[in-house]
Amino acid sequence: MGWLLGAVAAWLIGWQINSRLARRPLSRATAFAGPVIFGLTVILIWECLVRGLDISPVLLPPPSQIIQTFGASLPLLWRDFVQTVVKGALTGYVLGCSAAVLLAVAIDRFPFLKRGLLPVGSFMAALPIIGLAPILVMWFGFDWQSKAAVVVVMVFFPMLVNTVEGLSDTGAMQRDLMRTYAAGYWKTLFKLRLPAAMPFIFNGLKIATTLALIGAIVAEFFGSPTKGMGFRISISVGQLAMDLVWAEIVVAAIAGSAFYGAIALLEKTLTFWHPSQRGRM
């Protein structure tokens, strides 16, 4: 009974603190404190409910057990992180996004390519990953190269569509002004169209961050060496080691949030002039 009362108390305290923060003027401190307090409240309620209702750790381990497993498994988690995130997801992300930007420039330069290549890109985006991953694993092997290939396929189309849309965002008056300066296509591209397309490009990059991590993890379910986050989750589920599964999920959540945050910070630095960035904390 005490654990259930603790859950209610944690909810009330978190609610009161966040209510007071919401009435204060927005600042960096309050913007950061709100999510942190909410997250801590959820963790406390989770811990109290699992303990109070005597839920089996196989169904839902308490956060204290997950933290303990996380600390005890740091070398293992680090090896899995390097294999999945650094080698698989990041490599595929860079290759897929770079190829999409280059193809978008080619489509912009030669408009007839748009009618032929965009439907192909749409077709690739519609391919189910659970059917595509085993094929790419057979083609590229069980190591990280096949996971990077899956990521390339997943991030390519969102990046391509956003970049093509961004390159066509400039107005006729802006393009006419560049022509009056005798600027050719490439100078107009680098001086006007690519800078104007940056918000669209970063939108595609942010979408691709989550797709890259999901693609790399899911692809490891269909063949992997004895390391990797997807491999570890699959094996741990079979062993009913759900605390280790949750530890891997925590690593994936931290990695995904950091990856997205880094791209968002780069966007704010490079596109500070855009109206969408004005007034942001």
Results as ranks from 00 to 15, higher is better:
residue 219 A to K: 01
residue 203 N to I: 06
residue 233 I to C: 03
residue 198 M to V: 12
residue 226 T to S: 14
residue 192 L to H: 06
residue 250 V to E: 02
residue 197 A to L: 10
residue 220 E to W: 01
residue 212 A to I: 04
residue 198 M to K: 10
residue 226 T to V: 13
residue 174 Q to M: 12
residue 208 A to Q: 02
residue 243 D to F: 01
residue 230 G to S: 02
residue 220 E to V: 00
residue 192 L to C: 08
residue 242 M to N: 07
residue 214 I to M: 14
residue 231 F to Y: 13
residue 173 M to T: 14
residue 215 G to C: 04
residue 215 G to F: 00
residue 189 L to W: 07
residue 212 A to G: 08
residue 241 A to S: 12
residue 246 W to K: 03
residue 249 I to H: 05
residue 190 F to P: 12
residue 209 T to I: 04
residue 184 G to Q: 11
residue 182 A to D: 15
residue 175 R to A: 09
residue 171 G to C: 10
residue 195 P to G: 05
residue 208 A to M: 04
residue 169 D to N: 15
residue 250 V to C: 11
residue 194 L to W: 06
residue 178 M to G: 02
residue 216 A to F: 03
residue 183 A to V: 05
residue 238 G to C: 07
residue 196 A to M: 13
residue 186 W to D: 12
residue 228 G to T: 00
residue 169 D to M: 15
residue 222 F to Q: 00
residue 211 L to E: 07
residue 214 I to Q: 08
residue 217 I to T: 15
residue 248 E to A: 10
residue 240 L to D: 10
residue 191 K to M: 15
residue 213 L to P: 04
residue 249 I to G: 05
residue 207 I to Y: 03
residue 185 Y to V: 08
residue 233 I to K: 00
residue 228 G to H: 00
residue 209 T to E: 02
residue 225 P to Q: 10
residue 213 L to T: 07
residue 240 L to C: 11
residue 196 A to Q: 12
residue 180 T to G: 14
residue 198 M to N: 07
residue 199 P to E: 04
residue 196 A to T: 12
residue 180 T to V: 14
residue 203 N to L: 10
residue 177 L to G: 10
residue 195 P to T: 03
residue 190 F to D: 11
